[in-house]
């Protein structure tokens, strides 16, 4: 070990990536850890304050609690709107028919656009007065004067629906990839077993899609806690009336950047990171466990 000559090549090759990532991500992450234990709030000077930020966050900040709850509701709704829709579309598109490829391309389109743009577009669509959505309801004979994005009953669902419109194409492609990996013989065999398409889906297709679905759920769940753009554009200033569309990332930006509560913002950032990390951890663990059970399905 001591006499061995160290080959400098790998270190030199790694240097630029590690330096850039280190300086602009890793060091700031450490900064978040440190600042989370200070009461730094511009323009006051910075002081250590121990766990005060965290007790405030967990005990007192009822808007953070609301934002967190909203985040979980959004997570739940976006799973329905994104993954379930994608699954349904994938099954519809599994049959052979003309233009099948075109549909897949079409559903993926919103993925390539800036979320801000989609947000503005849907702000117009979901408008109370003359919005396309209300106009569509009206033409179906339903009374439509709902202001979708500020009504406490519908606002989160409306944003989740937009998010479903954007991401279902993405999950569709993932699920199609998963379907493509299912051996044909297995499906043929199942067809002999039962005539019920629903039974075949539940007992054969779904279990075989498990790993793809785990990936989808993981992406959807961490995505829900990283969301910002859509909520910023659709949710309105300070998260809608009564913070009904406030989520942790938007609340963080308001606290840290509008109000300059850097220390408190960092504590919230830390909490968010722990949540995202925990979700990622849980699903990685599940995915690993499942892999051992079903070794014939390799990714």
């Amino acid at each position: 070990m001591s006499g061995k000559k160290i080959n400098p090549a790998p270190y030199l090759f790694l240097a630029p990536a590690v330096l850039i990532f280190g300086l602009f991500v890793a060091v700031p992450v450490l900064g978040t850890f440190l600042l989370a234990f200070t009461d730094w709030s511009w323009p006051q000077p910075m002081r250590w304050c121990g766990l005060a930020n965290f007790t405030a966050l967990l005990r007192d900040d009822f808007i953070f609690h609301r934002a967190l709850a909203n985040n979980f509701i959004y997570l739940f709704l976006s799973m329905i709107f994104e993954i379930s829709t994608a699954l349904a579309l994938a099954l519809l598109l599994a049959r052979r028919f003309p233009g099948r490829g075109a549909f897949r391309i079409l559903f993926f389109t919103p993925m390539v656009l800036p979320l801000v743009l989609v947000g503005f577009l849907f702000r117009f669509i979901l408008r109370a007065d003359g919005g396309l959505f209300n106009a569509a309801l009206a033409s179906l004979g339903l009374p439509g004067e709902v202001d979708w994005l500020v009504d406490r009953r519908f606002a989160l669902a409306a944003i989740s629906m937009v998010s479903g419109w954007i991401y279902c194409g993405f999950f569709l492609v993932l699920i199609q990839a998963g379907l493509g990996r299912i051996p044909r013989e297995l499906l043929e065999a199942a067809r002999l077993e039962t005539d019920s398409a629903w039974k075949r889906f539940v007992h054969v297709t779904l279990p075989l899609l498990r790993e793809v679905l785990v990936v989808c759920v993981l992406l959807c769940a961490t995505g829900a806690f990283k969301a910002f753009d859509l909520f910023y554009v659709l949710g309105g200033r300070s998260g809608g009336p009564g913070h009904i569309t406030e989520i942790v990332p938007t609340w963080l930006v308001q606290q840290a950047f509008e109000l300059k509560h850097y220390g408190y913002g960092c504590a919230m950032a830390l909490a968010l990171t722990i949540i995202v990390g925990a979700i990622a951890g849980v699903y990685v663990k599940i995915a690993m466990g499942r892999k051992k059970e079903a070794p014939h399905l390799e990714f």
């Binding site: 202001d147 500020v150 009504d151 406490r152 300070s238 009336p241 009564g242 913070h243 009904i244």
Partner: peptide, 12 residues
Amino acid sequence: FDAVQQVLAGNR
């Protein structure tokens, strides 16, 4: 302001 907005929205 948030209180006003909630009242205007009829949420509270």
